[in-house]
Amino acid sequence: MKEAKKAGYSSFRVPLALNYLFQQSHFEKELLKLIEASIQLDSRLILANFNHGLSEKNYSQAIERLYSDWERVLSVVPQNPGNLYFELANEPDLNPDTWYRAVQDLVPRLHKIRKDIPFILGATNFNSLFELSRIQPWSLEGVIYTFHFYEPYLFTHQGTDWTGPQNSTLGIPFPYESSSMPRLDYRAKGTPGEINYRDYEMTGNSVAIQDKIGQIAAWAQINGVQLWCTEYGVTQNADADSRKIYLEEVQKVLSQHQIPGFVWEWEGNFGIKKLTPPFLSN
């Protein structure tokens, strides 16, 4: 964190598998060190829970585990924790009504323990901005709303094996340029990727990015809530020039709407170390 701060980064989002990590005897000590380092460096720190295991089948059990995991985290946090935030559950994939009720029950229970650390809340369908724009904000204090932005998906996830054949087409440029477009990979035929390829002339440009982020920014303004984008990015499978243009464009639009943004990274596949200038979170 210290080296990243020297490089110009001031905000950090750390993905944590809380249920797994609490089985490790040293985790709470290491967690405290991380929090204390962020305080000393005057950095914004988000702790995000990535292995909540929420589903419709195990809903009741998973909710109680989610509560107990955050209860344990709260017991570790020192007084005056600085710019510390908790992302309740990364990319929940429950029925929207189920998730809405769960949050309305869970956050007040955690606030009874401590109310000085804001919780970050997203919508279902993997923190979809479209799902978020459809809900009425929760009647809760001390919360921040989030969305993840990977539009257009055809470009940002090209060649990623975990998303399947739909994103098998490589060489997708940003912005769209007809003369630079590759042929649709045969594996993408008959998948949503074929439709996304067809529509890329309309979605692969700055105007489309401005329109989508503008919609959720308007929702936040109408409802008077604070809004962050806790993930945006593009795979290293895309060419470097396109990646830079895309990341700069998303950052510019987020900044225009005063939405803090965090570039996603995991095991190097979305990394930005080789891209300059650094893409700072707001």
Rank of each mutant, 00 (worst) to 15 (best):
E36I: 15
T124S: 01
L140T: 14
S60A: 11
Y153L: 15
Q24C: 05
A62Y: 01
D211M: 15
T276M: 03
R134K: 14
S242M: 08
G142K: 04
S10F: 09
Y67T: 06
L121Q: 04
I113R: 13
L170G: 03
Q24V: 03
A238R: 06
H148M: 05
P277D: 10
G159A: 04
Q258N: 08
Y186Q: 15
G233F: 04
Q221F: 08
S281M: 07
G261D: 13
I172W: 15
V73Q: 04
N125W: 02
Q166P: 14
L41I: 14
F86P: 13
H52G: 10
R13H: 12
E248L: 07
E267Q: 09
Q104M: 07
I63A: 01
L280H: 14
A218K: 14
M181A: 03
L275M: 09
L16N: 03
L140Y: 15
V107T: 01
F270I: 01
Y232G: 03
L74I: 11
P92Y: 08
G268C: 04
L47N: 06
N196R: 11
L170P: 09
P165A: 12
E267F: 15
S281G: 07
A7Y: 12
R65M: 09
N90P: 13
P192D: 10
E151F: 14
I63D: 00
S75T: 06
L110S: 09
A218M: 13
S75E: 02
F155A: 12
R187N: 09
A188F: 05
A123L: 02
S11H: 11
T276F: 03
L34F: 10
V103I: 08
I135T: 13
K189L: 07
D161W: 06
I46W: 13
F27E: 05
A89E: 06
I213H: 06
S139Y: 14
N237S: 08
W70Y: 07
L247Q: 10
S55N: 05
E36F: 12
Y246F: 03
L88R: 05
T156A: 15
G53P: 01
I222M: 00
R134Y: 09
I46Y: 15
L132D: 04
G233Y: 01
P118C: 07
P260A: 07
I35M: 03
E91K: 07
L184A: 10
A240C: 03
G8P: 10
K33S: 08
Y153V: 08
S60E: 12
L132I: 07
L184H: 13
K115A: 13
E131P: 00
A17E: 10
Y85A: 07
M202I: 06
D199P: 02
F12M: 05
D239A: 05
H148N: 08
A102D: 05
E131K: 02
A208K: 12
A188E: 05
E249I: 15
C229M: 11
E71S: 11
P108D: 09
Q79I: 15
S242C: 08
D42S: 11
E131A: 00
S133D: 05
V250M: 00
L45R: 14
N19T: 15
E3M: 07
S179I: 01
N80H: 12
I35Y: 02
E131Q: 09
G53W: 10
A208S: 13
P152C: 15
D97W: 01
Q61W: 10
E231L: 06
Q221L: 08
L106T: 04
Y100H: 12
F86E: 05
L74R: 03
I135S: 00
D239R: 00
Q221E: 04
W162N: 12
G261K: 11
